[in-house]
Amino acid sequence: MAETLGSYLLLSSALFAVGLFGVLLRRNLVAMLIGVELMLNAVIINLVAFARFAGADPGNGQVFALFVIGVAAAEAAVGLSIILTVFKARGAISVDRLEELSG
């Protein structure tokens, strides 16, 4: 596969789709969180690729990617702690147990 922008985008799109489906279909809360992380990773690939191929300044995209990585870390921390409280309250981390609030 040639090193073109297209191939990177293909990869990132696939990754994004995998992440998205993970979020939409997995029942486990942690798995859903991982899905979100995958989506963020797809974005990172996008950013870096765009910076490399289309950007005026490659550093710009890389900085952006670093920020995203930082946010992703925060996300994992916050997410896991919330999952923890859910687990304490419900004794399970399946999304099926989170259907009490409706209407």
Partner: peptide, 21 residues
């Protein structure tokens, strides 16, 4: 509130990932 918090968080994280995309 745990349930709401998780939904809020995950929904927010997913949308922000999409927005970021």
């Amino acid at each position: 509130h745990n349930e709401a918090a998780f939904k809020y968080f995950l929904y927010g994280a997913a949308t922000s990932a999409v927005a970021l995309f």
